[in-house]
């Protein structure tokens, strides 16, 4: 691939996913409204379709404010850390057979690695804002992400025992004989549940939104951010949510593969199937968010270290046994 080609693809991805992220925000707002007996944004554009565009425009045009004694360099750097890592991770997601920007042989590993860089941005942002609420939020984020990284990694590792490859295109290939959640049956379902919980926690969404926790910390780590810099954080949160759902789709639900191969002859429909599956998982995460109360910070750690991690470790052994005894369900 030539450099120019890479830059072009990068720009296209940036364009598509910034806009897609905005629509994800809109979706969240509408879904939240429907859960809460409201209507949601419905004024700007048809059924409010342009609402988040207008919001983004507003945020761009807003004055950038900051605290007086903030560490200016780190303060400005932080939002880019968060948004760039979120966008980078999208590069390896297989939307359909040929719609994958970057198919590296350590795909899953790359995704896990890149998603843990985002937290550095949050830590920096909270630390550099010179605000105590932001600092508490950032420290919570550090604690939370480091713990839940383990569960995300281990639950994916469980599935890799099945696929025997880290490369995402090969993971999809394996699933032509049945989605992995079916192939791996019980351990795969447990792994999926663990992944969804840990993934929600990774993205700092309710019920694990300790980082923001608006009733405790005001706005948490981004208290002192305004305008476009706030928008970066906000957008990154939604792209991260999309990412977690996309990884789950790829690893558990056969990525762009259609159910029972009904549209195998039309390859471009893969995008449709991929997005459908991803959005269903995104909806599930929204459902969590608008139903559950928030955990307390120590309970968050209890959940990880006393429940998710032991379950995960046992689950890997079970999966290894399943693979060893070839108890896999294949069509």
């Amino acid at each position: 691939m030539s450099i120019i080609e890479m830059v072009l693809i990068a720009l296209v991805y940036l364009g598509i996913f910034s806009v897609a992220g905005l629509f994800l925000v809109l979706l969240e707002r509408r879904v939240a409204a429907w859960f809460q007996l409201r209507i949601g944004p419905n004024r700007v554009g048809f059924q409010g379709l342009l609402q988040t565009m207008a919001d983004a425009l507003k945020l761009v045009s807003k004055e950038l404010t900051g605290t007086e004694k903030a560490d200016k360099f780190l303060y400005n750097l932080a939002p880019y850390f968060v948004i760039i890592t979120a966008l980078m991770a999208l590069g390896v997601i297989p939307f359909t057979k040929d719609f994958q920007a970057f198919d590296i042989n350590i795909g899953i590993f790359f995704l896990i690695a890149i998603s843990s860089i985002g937290v550095i941005g949050i830590l920096l942002g909270g630390w550099a804002s010179n605000n105590k609420f932001a600092l508490i939020g950032a420290m919570r984020s550090g604690v939370q992400t480091i713990s839940y990284e383990l569960s995300v990694g281990l639950s994916l590792l469980t599935m890799i025992l099945l696929t025997r490859s880290l490369q995402l295109s090969e993971i999809v290939e394996v699933q032509k004989n049945g989605w992995l959640i079916v192939q791996g049956h019980i351990p795969a379902i447990i792994a999926f549940m663990v992944f969804m919980i840990a993934g929600t926690a990774e993205t700092n969404r309710a019920p694990f939104d300790m980082v923001e926790a608006e009733s405790e910390l005001g706005a948490g780590f981004h208290t002192e951010y305004s305008g476009m810099k706030f928008a970066y954080f906000f957008l990154a949160e939604f792209i991260n949510m999309f990412l977690i759902a996309a990884i789950a789709t790829t690893v558990f639900f056969g990525a762009w593969l259609s159910p029972f191969g009904i549209t195998e002859s039309i390859p471009w429909l893969g995008v449709f199937w991929f997005l459908l599956k991803t959005l269903i998982l995104v909806f599930l995460m929204m459902w969590f968010r608008w139903t559950f109360p928030r955990l307390r910070v120590d309970q968050l750690l209890t959940l990880e270290w006393k429940y998710l991690l032991p379950i995960n470790l046992v689950n890997i052994v079970i999966m290894a046994f399943v693979v060893w005894q070839n108890l896999i369900i294949q069509f």
């Binding site: 879904v31 409204a33 429907w34 859960f35 809460q36 007996l37 409201r38 209507i39 459902w287 608008w290 139903t291």
Partner: peptide, 15 residues
């Protein structure tokens, strides 16, 4: 509970 309201959101909106 919330799912039920989501499905009935069309007629249940109090806005």
């Amino acid at each position: 509970v919330t799912g039920k309201y989501f499905l009935n959101s069309r007629k249940g909106a109090i806005t």
